[in-house]
């Protein structure tokens, strides 16, 4: 098990689009924390640390708000119109032993036999919803597609994979 990403957060005094835009200009990302039947808290995170953590596949994070440290997972990310910058983050409180439902990306591994026979790989599902413990969330589900060939009149096959 690897260590969780640590993010230092500041509590936001003002809410609304104008104050959020100001924060983004200062290199911070507005965020909200909720869950575990506690009051939601509006915070801001450092944009650089956040982007770096997400780039390295961090999903479970330890967020330090003041002196208090809580374990959370990313619930939702909002991007700008070009899909470059993160403009808002939703975080949800979790326990390491808690069972949660998360979506995990599917990674196709290898080259399918059918591609040499004129077939085309179409990935209709690129993520799966799974239920697991917070500490055991996989980065991706790796599926080997080496053995998939082409059968005339039949599309390839999720069940066989």
């Amino acid at each position: 098990m690897r260590n969780n990403l640590l993010l230092k957060a500041q509590i936001r005094e003002d809410v609304g689009s104008k104050s959020a835009a100001k924060l983004r200009k200062q290199g911070r990302v507005p965020a909200v924390v909720y869950g575990h039947k506690k009051e939601p808290v509006v915070i801001s995170l450092d944009a650089h640390n956040l982007a770096e953590g997400l780039h390295h596949g961090g999903r479970v994070v330890d967020v330090q708000i003041g002196k208090k440290k809580e374990t959370m997972i990313f619930k939702d990310l909002q991007y700008d119109y070009l899909g470059k910058d993160i403009i808002h983050v939703d975080l949800i409180r979790v326990d390491a032993t808690e069972m949660i439902k998360v979506t995990v990306p599917i990674e196709l591994k290898g080259t399918a036999k059918g591609t040499h026979e004129g077939g085309i790989i179409e990935e209709h599902i690129d993520r799966l919803e799974i239920e697991c413990k917070v500490a055991d969330i996989p980065e991706a589900i790796v599926v080997s597609i080496k053995e998939i060939g082409v059968e005339i009149g039949r599309a390839s096959c999720r069940e066989r994979v």
Binding site: F74, D76, L77, Y79, G83, V102, T103, D126, R127
Partner: peptide, 8 residues
């Protein structure tokens, strides 16, 4: 050019 972004 853009790539698919895997959502959470």
């Amino acid at each position: 050019f853009v790539k698919r972004r895997h959502s959470l």
